[in-house]
Design a protein around this nucleic acid. Structure first.
Lengths: 212, 212
DNA sequence: TAGATTGTTAATCGATTAACAATC
DNA sequence: TAGATTGTTAATCGATTAACAATC
């Protein structure tokens, strides 16, 4: 079982947050043991798929009984890399940036929003949802000082590439990009795209297929 | 070429918003003709994949030349069902709901935010980003009156299922769900999940795989 | 042991891609 | 015609699922 050689399919990784979601709920309800069939029904997938996904991480279940909720929850958090706290900075203190700064879901998953960066002088020096707002010019200095790792891009599409360049230069390791644009970054930088418009357009497509 | 019988792969549909993004940019830049290779490089996919995807919608390109930007853009908008304007309501006027109410990207894609629904009496009767805030109790009445079709759920996870039930009962046809929970709804209701935590956790996974 | 559910296999299904004939 | 790029084929690759032996 050599860690480095285990190849986890992309499709499996993409479902781990879903499993985390379901297991967290069972945990809160005080349920300590669940079958693959129960979890699968809750999530609208097949139990085969769930068992296959979990099998990549070794035998986590108990034959004849099911899965121990606490145990599985811990293992999934471990696989997702949630043991270690990560420090984020939000670039762009507009509506979306402000909303994310105060979003409790991040804190709950070990993600600490440590700084906001802006060019609007009216906002610089204030605090939004308890997070200090710095001038964009201080990006490099504050990144080192605060140990920032993940940059959340909530700037207009037209500015996104330039800001991405600054973020890379400042030493960030990953970008969570809300701007509806593909970024060009060095290949050692991790980019996660979060295009809200793409999501709702998929919905619109299904809607018009159904209703015309 | 019978419209009703064309089966478009899910993977292809999921990439259409991406193509829309790239083509809109070419259009704004005044570029009228692009090759599959150019678009593919911009988006970080193979040109084969792009041509295969587009082939499901009939011959849209010009052999030896490439694709006419305006023509292709129009066709993709058509396929995504963007000709018709859609009316949305945001349920939950918290930080995220407020941010989405003022998000220009929705308007730009023919999505009109017509109403916000809340239980907080302090917000009811006011307008947020020009959108009137109604009490949740008026959901049914206003849905019919305003011709609302898509409900955007920006309520806490604990309230999401109950609100979803109300939304279905009120006559909405689709739900864009930001609450980190799977919803149980009748099968004629379209649900698009937009789990922000899932997105950032995927990023954290890649980050910890790379850095430990 | 009897009942239940996992972990795994093997078949099936769907998506991606290289290659090239068609054709502008 | 010569050059270029599409649309399509067929091979490859990866993901899903039904079925069942393993085992609690």
């Amino acid at each position: 079982m050599e860690e480095g050689l285990v190849v986890i399919p992309k499709a499996t990784v993409s479902r781990l947050p879903l499993y985390l979601q379901a297991l967290t709920e069972y945990d809160h309800l005080g349920i300590t043991l669940v079958s693959s069939e129960e979890i699968a029904q809750k999530l609208g997938i097949t139990s085969s798929q769930l068992r296959k996904d979990l099998s990549y991480f070794g035998g986590l279940g108990i034959r004849g009984a099911g899965y121990d909720v606490a145990c599985l929850l811990g293992r999934i958090k471990e696989i997702l890399g949630m043991q270690k706290k990560r420090r984020l900075a939000i670039i762009g203190a507009g509506k979306l940036g402000t909303a994310l700064a105060g979003y409790r879901g991040l804190q709950q998953h070990g993600l600490e929003v440590k700084a906001l960066f802006e060019i609007d002088k009216g906002k610089i020096g204030t605090a939004i949802a308890g997070v200090p707002v710095y001038p964009l010019a201080e990006l490099h200095a504050q990144t080192a000082r605060l140990g920032l790792e993940i940059a959340v891009l909530t700037v207009p599409a037209a500015a996104a590439q330039k800001v991405a360049d600054l973020v890379v230069e400042a030493g960030f390791k990953a970008i969570w990009n809300f701007a509806p644009i593909r970024l060009e970054v060095p290949e050692n930088i991790i980019v996660q795209y979060e295009d809200l418009v793409a999501g709702v357009l998929t919905l619109v497509h299904h809607l018009s297929r159904k209703l015309g």
